[in-house]
Amino acid sequence: KELVSALYDYQEKSPREVTMKKGDILTLLNSTNKDWWKVEVNGRQGFVPAAYVKKL
């Protein structure tokens, strides 16, 4: 599985998104959309802005 690192804090703005803190390591589930990537963090799945994470 592919991992990404959070470059910035992000506070979810809808139920489809997830909150992350800078430095968090997230499991990348889907990166086909260039703007929003689906990740899993702390057992929750949702979307984060692609520009806020980088692949490890």
Rank of each mutant, 00 (worst) to 15 (best):
E12K: 14
L3R: 10
E12P: 15
W37K: 01
Y52H: 10
E17N: 06
N42F: 07
Q11F: 14
I25L: 10
G46Y: 04
V39K: 00
Y8Q: 12
A51E: 13
A50Y: 02
E17I: 04
S5Y: 15
K21D: 04
M20H: 01
A51Y: 11
G23P: 00
L7I: 12
G23Q: 03
A51T: 11
V41F: 14
D24Q: 12
E2I: 15
K34T: 11
Y52K: 09
N33W: 07
S14T: 12
K13S: 11
E12G: 15
A50P: 07
Y52A: 15
F47W: 15
V4M: 07
K55H: 12
L56D: 07
K13H: 09
L3Q: 11
K1Y: 15
K1I: 14
L29W: 05
S14M: 08
A51W: 12
T32M: 11
W37G: 00
S31C: 14
L28D: 01
K22Y: 06
V53N: 00
K54E: 15
K38G: 06
P15G: 10
L7D: 03
N30F: 07
W36E: 04
N33D: 14
Y10E: 01
L29H: 05
V48F: 00
A6E: 01
L26Y: 09
E2V: 15
K13M: 12
S5A: 15
F47E: 04
L3P: 05
L29Y: 04
V4K: 02
T27R: 12
N42C: 09
W36I: 03
D35R: 12
K13W: 05
V39H: 00
F47K: 03
Q45M: 10
P15E: 12
E12F: 07
K38Y: 15
Q45I: 15
V4N: 02
G43E: 06
V41Q: 09
Q11T: 14
D35G: 09
V4Y: 14
Y52G: 10
A51H: 13
E12N: 08
V4R: 05
K13L: 10
V41I: 15
V4G: 14
N33R: 09
S31D: 15
A50W: 01
D9I: 02
Y8P: 01
D9P: 07
K34H: 11
K55R: 13
Y10T: 01
E12S: 15
I25Y: 05
D24R: 02
A6Y: 01
R44T: 07
E2S: 13
Q45L: 08
K55G: 08
A51L: 10
S5G: 09
L7A: 06
T32E: 14
R44A: 06
S14A: 08
Y10V: 01
P49H: 02
L3D: 04
P49F: 03
K34G: 11
K22E: 08
R16N: 14
D9N: 08
L29N: 02
D35H: 15
G23A: 04
G23V: 00
S5M: 15
L7N: 05
